[in-house]
């Protein structure tokens, strides 16, 4: 399933259109960036509430293609600008991290 298809399926708001619409095979859920940096290397999508610029540097390093910000957290402009530069998609959902993880897992299993 492509990133854009996943976003439509999960009803996420897409906030940053400049991304590479690649295949999603795995996701990682974490709110500690040091943990993402160490352990998210196999993931294409990061599910988190850490809505700030530093998340982009860490996601880029880990090879993340898209970030889903949960609980409708507000997303600062500089985060969107950095994401555009790194071609990383930014989505937002009102669901929490558990619900979002479940949605992604179900979609990948289907």
């Amino acid at each position: 399933m492509k990133l854009s298809e996943m976003a439509t399926h999960a009803n996420w708001a897409s906030l940053q259109p400049e991304f590479v619409d690649s295949e999603v095979e795995a996701a990682y859920t974490s709110d500690l960036l040091s943990d993402v940096m160490a352990n998210a290397h196999d993931a294409d999508v990061l599910i988190t509430i850490q809505a700030h610029n530093n998340t982009i540097a860490v996601a880029s390093l880990a090879g993340i293609k898209g970030i889903v910000i949960c609980n409708d957290r507000s997303i600062p402009e500089d985060m969107l600008a950095s994401a555009a530069k790194e071609k990383i998609a930014i989505f937002r959902t009102s669901q929490n991290q558990f619900q979002t993880s479940q949605t992604v897992a179900n979609a990948l299993d289907a």
């Binding site: 040091s34 940096m37 160490a38 540097a57 880029s60 390093l61």
Partner: peptide, 11 residues
């Protein structure tokens, strides 16, 4: 401090 190598291009 974890011995995580610096990626100077990014950081």
């Amino acid at each position: 401090l974890p011995a995580y190598p610096l990626d100077a291009e990014r950081f």
